[in-house]
Simulated scan of single mutants.
Amino acid sequence: MSIIFDPRDPSIRTDPYPVYRRLRETDPIHQSHFGYWVLSRYADVDAVLCAPGASSEFYRNTTWANRRGGADSPLLQSVQNWMLMLDGPAHRRIRGVIGKVFTRASVARLRPRITAETDRLLDAVGEGETDLIDSLALPLPVTVTCELLGLPPYDRDQCRRWTKQISRVIDPSITFEDTTGMNTAEVEFREYVAEQLDERRSTPREDILSLLVHAEVDGVRLTDREIIANVLFLFVAGHETTVNLIGNGLLALLRHPDQLRMLRENPEMITDAMDEITRYDAPVQIVSRLLTDDVALEDVTLPAGAKVMLLFGAASRDPARYRDPDRLDLTRTGIKTLAFSSGPHYCIGAALGKLETSVVLTELLRRYSRIELTSENLVWRPNVSFRGLQRLPLRLMR
């Protein structure tokens, strides 16, 4: 029986891993009915991510652009300046500026502030029943991102609403309503950030916005359009990924009580365990590439001009790369997770997302002697590129 992989299928949102397994075993280089090559094996996915002939500049594809409002739409004018959507020198130019903020040392210095904010949110939660997504996983990363950028804390809820809409841009299952909402949100967000940039020009601060306004690359400053676009990208990438990593990570631990107990008894394991937690249920499931040159894989050569869908979630459960991949094993070594991509587009904020998640898990296990799911009827968010829970209903007991 042939497989038809459709990312819009609701079962993919609920539990994509059985479908991924069938693809790897029977049709690992799958030609989909919607015009993409779909890759599910680790080696193939990694090869395309690192291939010089694989482009991230999807805004150049007319079909892709038209589904998001067309080349002249506010959204397309923005994303063609996102470093996520750029290749070569253009990508390196913007990454070179923003990368100064996300060094290992600078991220490590954020730990006390992240811990303090986590404690504040958990103080408000107390004991009893709660939805951990709404009470902790959603507000924490948006608060951290706002602080890094220097945006007022009272604007964080509005920033989160804009981010939630615009994050659908890379999703293959968007609707007309999504497109309208994304373009409206982009205009509102752009106007908001433009006002913030004007303030930084007159009164610089110790924040990312001030850095971006005044930084130069080879003697040339970023344009306002480039700055605003990449501030938006930082929100989308940093917020959406971390929310999902927190929720997916805790759910995985609750469903593997032996691993939860190990982490509770050995909290110092958390830093090394984050790669396994990320691998097991990747917060980013699908990314795509346009091929500008042929890309040779083990079984086939993908032709120039092809659109390729890379299943990070499938690659992360590939038994050819990981022994017993469907089991969470916090002692697993040799992990090179693709959940934050690979090659030149490796996620610039990966260390920050893992730090935020490690702090949350550590503080939860320190505070509460029992953490229980109150329902197995879990609902996953409609975005299929990002995998995350709508709610994580828990009972917390000291």
Rank of each mutant, 00 (worst) to 15 (best):
W64P: 00
R68L: 10
W162N: 13
P204Y: 00
S173M: 13
T179A: 15
T103R: 07
T103D: 09
N383S: 10
E177T: 07
Q77T: 03
G343W: 01
M85L: 14
G69N: 05
L392V: 03
T163W: 01
M83L: 13
E25V: 10
T242Y: 04
R111L: 09
D326A: 15
N377P: 06
M309P: 02
R68A: 14
L297K: 06
E298W: 08
R21W: 05
P267C: 13
S375Y: 06
R264T: 12
T333I: 10
E372T: 08
E298T: 10
P325S: 12
W37R: 04
R261A: 13
P74T: 08
H30S: 02
G238C: 06
G96Y: 02
A137M: 07
L39Y: 15
V48W: 00
A273N: 14
R370Q: 15
H345K: 03
P382A: 11
S40I: 05
E226P: 04
A252K: 05
R387K: 09
N244A: 14
V359K: 00
G305E: 08
T374D: 05
L352M: 14
A351N: 01
R261T: 10
R391Y: 09
P52G: 10
A314C: 08
D318C: 02
A252F: 03
L234A: 05
A124M: 03
T103Y: 13
S32H: 03
L232H: 04
D123H: 01
R395V: 06
D72G: 04
Q158S: 09
S11D: 09
N248P: 05
V243T: 05
D27V: 12
R95V: 02
R367H: 08
N183S: 12
R168I: 04
I94Q: 01
E191V: 02
G69Y: 02
D27I: 09
E199W: 06
L209Q: 14
P52N: 02
S106H: 13
P52M: 05
P204H: 00
E372V: 04
L254N: 02
S106A: 14
A185Q: 00
A304G: 06
A315G: 03
S173E: 10
T278I: 10
I335L: 13
L310D: 00
D272V: 03
L365G: 01
L23T: 11
T130I: 03
A237F: 11
A229D: 04
H239R: 11
A273D: 14
